[in-house]
Design a protein around this nucleic acid. Structure first.
Length: 305
DNA sequence: AAACCGGGGAC
DNA sequence: GTCCCAGGTTT
C-alpha cells in the first residue's frame, strides 16, 4: 500500500499500475529496497517522473528496515516522501486510524458539495475531518476518492449518477464545473540546450544528473544555453568541459515537461572518457529521444557521423 | 503562500 | 494547447 500511494502521487491510477508490479517484483521486501543501489531503484522508476519519489522511498525503506513499520499517522508522516495525504491514507486504510485524506479528488468533491471556487488546503482538510466516519475511516476515504475519480470528475461530471446530488450546492447552481476554479499555473519556461553523444546507442558517456531536476538519473552530457547563445557556442563549452572533440550535428529534439519546454540540439563527439551501458542506466524521456537520433544515422539514412 | 518537480491521459 | 493526476519538499 505504501509503494502504491507513492506511485500514485500526481500520477493517474492506470499509469501507477504499470509500475506497481514491476517495482514490487524488483524489490519484494522493505529490506530488499533498503539494500538496493539507488541506480537500480531509479531504473525501476524510469519514465514515471518525479524521481525524488523513488529516492525518498528507498531512503525511507532504510528507516523502516532499521526501526520497523510506523504504527500511526505521525510515524508515517516522519518518513521522507510521506506527506499529509500519504500518511492519512496509510493510517486509515491499513491501520484503521481516523484520519481524513485530502487529495485532488477530495478537494474537487468538497469544493462542489459546498460550491467553493478556491478552497484552501486547510478548508478542505477541515471539511474532510468533519465528514469522516470515524468508525470506517478507510472506507470513507476510499469512497470519496472513488466518487471523485469516477463520478465527480473534472470536466464532465456524471451528476445524475451521484449519490450526493440532492445535497450538492454546485449541482444546484447548474454549473458544477465552476467549482473549484482552475488553478493558475505558471507558463512553462522555454529552455534551449545542447547534448553530445560520445559512443553509440549501446555504450555512451553518461553523467549523473544532480540537483532537483531529474536528480539521480543518468543522461547525456549537456549544457543549457544562455539567452541568445548559439548551439555552436554551447557545444564548444560542453566539449571543453568534457575534453572532447565536437562532431556532427545529429538533429534537434523537443520535449515538454510541466514547467519546461526543452529544445535540445544533439551532436556527436569524440573523447577517451569511459562509456557505460545505456540499457542499464535510468534515463529521462528527453535523453531517450536524443539517443534515438542515432538510429537514423546508423540506419544509413545520412551516413555515419 | 508560492515555486518547483515529469510524464502522460483526456479533451 | 489546456487542465489535471489518489502530492511532497523547499524557499
Amino acid at each position: 500500500m505504501w509503494v502504491a500511494e507513492i506511485l500514485l502521487q500526481q500520477t493517474q491510477v492506470a499509469r501507477g499500475l504499470e509500475y506497481y508490479d514491476r517495482f514490487l517484483s524488483a524489490f519484494p521486501t522493505v529490506e530488499a529496497l533498503a539494500a538496493a543501489p539507488e541506480a537500480d531503484v531509479l531504473k525501476a522508476w524510469e519514465g514515471c517522473g518525479y524521481y525524488a519519489r523513488a529516492r525518498n522511498l528507498r531512503r525511507a525503506a532504510g528507516v523502516v528496515a532499521a526501526r520497523g513499520f510506523p504504527q500511526d499517522y505521525a510515524g508515517w508522516l516522519a518518513l521522507p516522501g510521506v506527506g499529509s495525504y500519504t500518511a492519512a491514507a496509510v493510517a486509515s486504510l491499513a491501520y484503521g486510524e481516523a484520519r481524513a485524506v485530502n487529495d485532488g479528488n477530495v478537494r474537487r468533491v468538497l469544493a462542489r458539495l459546498y460550491a467553493q471556487t478556491a478552497p484552501t488546503d486547510a478548508w478542505v482538510q477541515a471539511r474532510a475531518d468533519e465528514l469522516l466516519d470515524p468508525a470506517r475511516p478507510g472506507d470513507w476515504n476510499e469512497a470519496v476518492m472513488d466518487l471523485g475519480a469516477t463520478v465527480c470528475i473534472p470536466k464532465a461530471p456524471r451528476c445524475p449518477a451521484c449519490p450526493l446530488r440532492a445535497s450538492c450546492a454546485a449541482f444546484a447552481s447548474g454549473t458544477p464545473t465552476a467549482f473549484p476554479a482552475p488553478k493558475v499555473r505558471a507558463a512553462a519556461r522555454e529552455v534551449r540546450a545542447v547534448a553530445v553523444i560520445v559512443g553509440d546507442a549501446e555504450q555512451a558517456v553518461l553523467e549523473r544528473r544532480e540537483g532537483t531536476l531529474l536528480g539521480g538519473l543518468s543522461g547525456l552530457p549537456a549544457e543549457e544555453l544562455a539567452a541568445g547563445e548559439s548551439p555552436q557556442t554551447g557545444l564548444a563549452r560542453l566539449c571543453a568541459r568534457l575534453g572532447a572533440e565536437p562532431g556532427a550535428h545529429l538533429g534537434t529534439v523537443t520535449h515538454a515537461m510541466t514547467h519546461r519546454h526543452v529544445t535540445l540540439d544533439v551532436y556527436a563527439a569524440r573523447s577517451a572518457a569511459a562509456r557505460t551501458p545505456v540499457a542499464e542506466a535510468a534515463l529521462s524521456r528527453l535523453d531517450h529521444k536524443a539517443l534515438a537520433l542515432l538510429a537514423s544515422w546508423q540506419g544509413g539514412l545520412f551516413g555515419t557521423p
